[in-house]
Structures are given as C-alpha cells and as structure tokens.
Computed example of a mutant assay.
Amino acid sequence: MKLIVKVFPEITIKSRPVRKRFIRQLAKNIRNVLKDLDPELAVDGVWDNLEVVTRVEDEKVQREIIERLTCTPGITHFLQVEEYPLGDFDDIVAKCKQHFGHLLAGKHFAVRCKRGGHHDFTSMDVDRYVGSQLRQQCGAAGIELKNPEVLVRIEIRNQRLYVIHNQHNGIGGYPLGALEQTLVLMSGGFDSTVAAYQMMR
C-alpha cells in the first residue's frame, strides 16, 4: 500500500530550512507511530509531500495504519494510490480503466488530473482525453463535472502516474516536536481543552 501525505498548508509557506525541518519531523513522527505495525515502513520526501510505503498486506493492519495517520498532527490529508511509470495518454486510459472501469457503467463521472513537472501537455488535456475514452469504452452514462457519481482522480508528477483510490483527512496542525513546548492550564469545563486542541493544531 502506498500513501501520499499532504502536509499542513502553513508548513509550505515557511522558509526553506524551517520547511525542511518540519517535514523531517513529520516523517520521524510517522515512523514512530507506525513502527509497531510495520518495522520496515518506508517514509520518503522532504519538500511538500511524503510518500509512505508499506509491504504489509493484512487489511486489518492497513486500516490501522490509515486510522493512526488520520490522528497524526501535521497531516492535512493523505491519498491512497497506485503508482505507475508515466506512459502516453492511451496508457493512462488503460490504467484508469483497470481501476475504475467497473464503476462507470451507466454512471455520470468526471476526471480530475493534477500535474507537476515539465510535460508537453496540460492537466486539462489529460482530463479531456481520458474522460472521452472512458466514456466510450466503459459504457458510462455521460460526463458530469459538477456533481459526478464517480470521480476518477489521477496525479502526474514528473514521469510517474498516480491513480488515486481514496482520500483520508488528517487533523492538520504542526508536527509534534516541531515547535517549542507550551504550558496549558485546564479548568473544570471543556473550553480550555478545546482551546488547547485548537492551539495544538
């Protein structure tokens, strides 16, 4: 299972050294949180995304990994993806059909592509071509951009293609250990607890 972790947006506007330090701290936290589930877990990336890869195939363990990441400060959301080398447009269609083809028959759908790197095409070019081919090949009812019944999401980064299965939301905030310690006084009510949680985020 491969996950692409999107960091808290406030981290991305920090200076280069601070940003790298926060990302390294988040990577360290993820390893610590998940090491009992997968001692060989791989966490890579130092700029705006982290890639988390586990070879554990037990679905129960995978669900626990996802659950723990949703509660890890510093993560806005993370994507569950399949990764492939980037081919031509027809290859992208084939990969999308492999994962979404069985969901499209008789349904209205949309294709959303995000792209990073240098290519001789745009994200809209991918959206249009992949959408038109999937509609023809999978028996879809049509394309609906505003409220699709099925959303086909892909990311292209440099020469890699990521087909996105699911998106899981995190709690945001800064990674634990990235900032100085703060003393919080708790009263008998819940206001101070909620305020402390909001500050932590």
Rank of each mutant, 00 (worst) to 15 (best):
K14R: 14
G45S: 09
A42V: 09
S15R: 15
S15Y: 01
Q25S: 04
R19S: 09
L41K: 13
D38I: 02
A27W: 00
N29W: 15
W47K: 15
L41E: 01
R31H: 08
R31V: 03
A27T: 04
L34W: 12
F8H: 15
K6I: 05
F8N: 09
Q25I: 06
I13S: 01
K14S: 03
E51Q: 14
N32H: 10
L41M: 04
R24S: 15
A42Q: 12
N49F: 14
I23Q: 05
K35A: 11
L37H: 06
P39R: 04
V7A: 02
R16L: 10
L34Y: 03
K6D: 07
D36P: 03
D38S: 14
V52E: 09
R19W: 02
L26P: 02
L37V: 07
F8R: 00
K35D: 11
V33S: 00
R24H: 04
V43Q: 11
V56D: 02
T54G: 12
R19P: 00
V5I: 15
A27E: 05
V33G: 05
L41P: 15
L41H: 11
T54F: 05
F22I: 07
K20Q: 11
N49C: 00
A42L: 01
R24P: 01
R55V: 08
L41Y: 08
I23A: 08
N49Y: 14
D38F: 03
K28A: 14
P9N: 11
I13W: 03
V5G: 11
D36N: 05
D44T: 13
S15P: 02
D48T: 07
V46Q: 03
F22Y: 06
V18W: 09
E51T: 15
R21C: 01
V56S: 03
V53Y: 09
R31N: 05
F8W: 03
I30D: 11
R31M: 09
I11T: 00
L3A: 13
V53L: 07
I11G: 08
L26C: 08
I4A: 10
E40H: 13
I30V: 13
V43W: 02
N49W: 14
P17R: 10
D48S: 14
Q25W: 04
F22L: 14
V43L: 13
W47S: 12
P39D: 07
R19G: 08
L50I: 08
V52T: 05
L37C: 09
K28S: 07
P9S: 07
G45A: 01
V43F: 04
Q25Y: 05
L26Y: 09
I23N: 08
L26S: 15
I13D: 00
K14N: 07
A27S: 08
V53I: 14
Q25T: 11
S15E: 01
R21H: 04
V43M: 10
I13A: 01
L34S: 06
L26K: 06
R19H: 10
I30Y: 08
F22M: 15
L50E: 12
R55P: 13
L37T: 15
V52G: 06
V46C: 05
G45C: 09
P9T: 03
N29D: 00
P9A: 02
I4M: 12
L37G: 13
E10H: 02
